[in-house]
Structure formats: structure tokens, C-alpha cells
Amino acid sequence: MSMALLTRWSAPLVWLGLLLALAVGGEWLEPLLRWSEPEARRVLYPQADLLTLLLRHVQVVAIASGLAVVIGVGAAILVTRPGGRDFLPLVAQFASMGQTFPPVAVLALAVPVLGFGTWPIIVALLLYGLLPIVRNTLAGLEGLDPAIEEAARGMGMGGGQRLWQVELPLAAPIILAGIRTSVTVNIATAALGATVGASNLGAPIIAGIVNGNTAYILQGAVLIGLLALAVDSLFSRLLPARQ
């Protein structure tokens, strides 16, 4: 039993382990990084340790995606209720507009209002990640068989009960798939925050571009890639296997 559990969760565990090992034990990789940048004075990113940057990166993505889930799923639920149906086209349109706005532009426009630091990238990620969540939640709730709805009503369930016990559980796989897309895209996009002074895994990349040091860029890029793979494989374990 525990063996089966282990094999089921092996992929995310491997990615997570690799990620943490690289974040904590970056020094061991010095010879490898040295190979990519033989002439540079240093090859390990000196400003902050990678684990702190990784945690900040995760924090930013978690806040932005958490807000996007609450707002996106909440809005999609509201506009599929009888009382809010008038707002459905508007919400769908707004969500797709959010993804049309390039994150760099949103980031730049947020700086005058929110100042340099972490908040502009949170706003940019929130807006960018809203569409997959809203679209999938709408698809999940609207795509339910009307007969099921009818049956639930026939059993005497009220609107709230139907939502929590029937509609949301049935739509959950589609909603989760939307959240997965949103989160994985945001993990890569969050690196942009470093251009406006957020300290996350984008910081070594920017430092590498500015100083012409490929080793710095590699450290940021590899950790972001591993984080994306780890989170993506976690999501794929949460979702039921596709037929």
C-alpha cells in the first residue's frame, strides 16, 4: 500500500527533492557552473541565498494565484446563479481581456500606483492568471447535465446545497485543470517581477543579463523550471487520470 503510494507520488517528490537540493546546496555545483562561465570572477549568485529567493518566489505565486482562485471561481459562481446571469458576458470578456494585457505592461503600469517591490508583480500575475480559472470554472458549471440539476432539485436540495454538494464536486476536475494552467504559467512569469525590484528567482537572471554572466542566469532558470515541473506534477496527481 505504502509502496503504491510512493510510486504514485514519486514524480513530484523527485522534482521537489531536486529543487530543494539545488536551492540549498548550490555550492556543490560550482564546478559545473564554472564550466558555463570559465572566465567570470564568481559563478554563484552572491546577493542572496537561493533558498530565500525560492521561498519568495513561491510566496508571490501563492498570493497571486490564491487571489486569482478566490476572485475567478467566486465570480464564475456568481454569474452562473440566476441572480447574476446578466453579468456573465461581461465577466467572461473581462477575464479574456486580462490575458490580452501583456504582463510586462501591467507590471510597468502598476509601479506608479503601488511603488517598486513585490506588489506590482502580484497584480500582474493575478490579472494574467484569471482567464484560465474563470474560463474553466464557467465551462465546468455550465457543462453539467441538466438532468443532474433536476434530480438534485427533486431531492429537495436548496441552491446552496446544490452548489456545494453537486455542482462544485462535479466541476472540480475542470476547475483544477484551469488552476493548474494558471499556476504553472505564473511561476515562469513571476521572474519578471525582478525588473521592478521584487526579490525572487528572477533576480539572479537579471543580474546575469546585466553582468553578462550565464552562470547566474542558469541558477535562476533551472530553479524556476524545477519549481514549475514540481508543481505541475503535483497537480497531475490531484487530477483524476485521463482516460
Partner: peptide, 15 residues
Amino acid sequence: LQTIPSLALFGLLLA
């Protein structure tokens, strides 16, 4: 290719 952040891909092509 898509999991590499855009910022990093630009940087990695420099060298």
C-alpha cells in the same frame, strides 16, 4: 521550452 521563463531564455541565448 515553455517552462523556461522568458527572461531566462533571452539571457541564456546571449553567450
